[in-house]
Simulated assay, not measured.
Amino acid sequence: MAGSSSNDNPNNNKDYHDPPPAPLVDAGELGKWSLYRAVIAEFTATLLLVCITVATVIGHKRQSAEGAGDSCAGAGVLGIAWAFGGIIFVLVYCTAGISGGHINPAVTFGMLLARRVSLPRAALYMIAQCLGAMCGAGLARALHGGRQYERHGGGANELAAGYSAGAGLAAEMVGTFVLVYTVFSATDPKRKARDSHVPVLAPLPIGLAVLVVHLATIPITGTGINPARSLGPAVVYNGSKAWSEQWMFWVGPFAGAAAAMLYHQYILRGAAAKAFASSYLAHMHHAPS
Score class of each variant (00 low, 15 high):
191 R>D: 13
170 A>R: 05
209 A>N: 05
118 S>E: 11
91 L>V: 05
121 R>I: 04
206 I>V: 08
135 C>T: 11
145 G>P: 05
181 Y>V: 06
115 R>C: 10
128 A>H: 05
157 N>G: 04
186 A>H: 05
187 T>V: 12
141 R>Y: 11
191 R>K: 12
142 A>F: 09
148 Q>M: 11
84 F>P: 00
120 P>Q: 14
86 G>K: 07
81 A>I: 01
177 F>M: 04
75 A>Y: 04
185 S>E: 11
89 F>A: 05
95 T>I: 09
169 L>T: 08
206 I>P: 00
80 I>C: 01
148 Q>T: 09
87 I>M: 12
94 C>V: 14
141 R>W: 10
119 L>D: 13
147 R>E: 13
182 T>Y: 03
134 M>P: 03
111 M>H: 15
149 Y>Q: 01
197 H>S: 14
128 A>R: 02
83 A>E: 00
179 L>D: 12
99 S>I: 12
161 A>F: 02
100 G>H: 08
195 D>R: 15
78 L>H: 02
85 G>L: 02
191 R>A: 15
126 M>C: 14
187 T>D: 05
207 G>S: 07
71 S>L: 13
71 S>K: 13
132 G>K: 08
188 D>C: 07
149 Y>W: 07
196 S>Y: 15
181 Y>W: 14
123 A>P: 08
102 H>Q: 14
90 V>Q: 07
194 R>D: 10
188 D>I: 13
183 V>C: 04
146 G>R: 04
78 L>I: 11
145 G>D: 11
190 K>T: 10
84 F>A: 04
200 V>C: 10
186 A>F: 03
109 F>L: 15
95 T>G: 01
102 H>C: 08
150 E>M: 06
178 V>S: 03
138 G>H: 02
157 N>P: 04
149 Y>H: 06
87 I>N: 08
85 G>Y: 01
160 A>G: 02
74 G>A: 08
175 G>M: 12
156 A>Q: 02
180 V>C: 10
72 C>Q: 07
177 F>V: 01
197 H>P: 00
109 F>T: 10
97 G>I: 08
155 G>P: 00
163 Y>R: 07
202 A>G: 09
76 G>T: 02
156 A>P: 02
115 R>Q: 11
174 V>E: 09
173 M>E: 01
196 S>F: 15
